[in-house]
Amino acid sequence: MNVDKTDFESPHVELKNVTFSRGERVIYDDISMVFPKGKITAIMGPSGIGKTTLLRLIGGQLYPDSGDIIVAGQNIPQLSRKGLYSAREKMSMLFQSGALFTEMNVFDNVAFPIREHTKLPEDIIRTMVLMKLEAVGLRGAHQLMPNELSGGMARRAALARSIALDPELIMYDEPFVGQDPISMGVLVRLIRNLNTSLNLTSIVVSHDVKEVMGIADYMYIIADKRVIGHGTKEQLLASESPLVQQFLKGLADGPVPFHYPAPSISQDLMQG
């Protein structure tokens, strides 16, 4: 799959000059991004720069200080509460922890959004849930409670829940963190397959360069409150920016320094 110019003309999600700060600390400074429809777009960057915050901004859980966040033609920060809730019915988010409801079994977890938002009869819900679970390979586990699942299985069950109502947009928050290589492979394949079969717009937030390179159609690299590089896999690899190169190759020192900002070591030691 490739991305061409036309994809950017009618994007699914668009951030225009967004500035966001938490207290005194500026997280994003005048950032602009475009997420084409039906593609997998990845957001990469070092830990602790608020990649999850970006997803929450898109989901309308946080409000930017300034700027527009446009999802499917609607400006999220300006929506009323009701409008925001109906916009959220068309988007979905896979949380880092899975966020399965601990007091329900896998089946009820997946059925939850369907029961909340539709008035379908139980037998249809059952069929829908089992199909979603089949898609993630957990149909046999529908009676298990979340605490009986392994980390990878919990994330797959949560994935089944996030696609239960066939959303148009799905956001993955660090889907590969803490997974063994096999479940990592399974998740990578699932994200790819779901994207093509349901024609979803996917946004993946991650710092696992290898896995992301394998599935993303387009990538953004964020560091230091702004986008430091974006493009397809080839474009990024060919990038001359030392920041991008440092991140992609995983070098310890470079433009992003190894050391947290501090006075010189001799000065610090002398004080003791």
Binding site: G59, R88, S92, Q96, A99, T102, F112, E116, H117
Partner: peptide, 22 residues
């Protein structure tokens, strides 16, 4: 508190279900 820590409350919000009501 645990529902909050395990992002269950946030995920309810993202499913367009108001955690205050639910």
């Amino acid at each position: 508190g645990l529902m909050k820590a395990t992002e269950q409350l946030t995920s309810l919000e993202m499913m367009a279900v108001d955690p205050l009501r639910r």
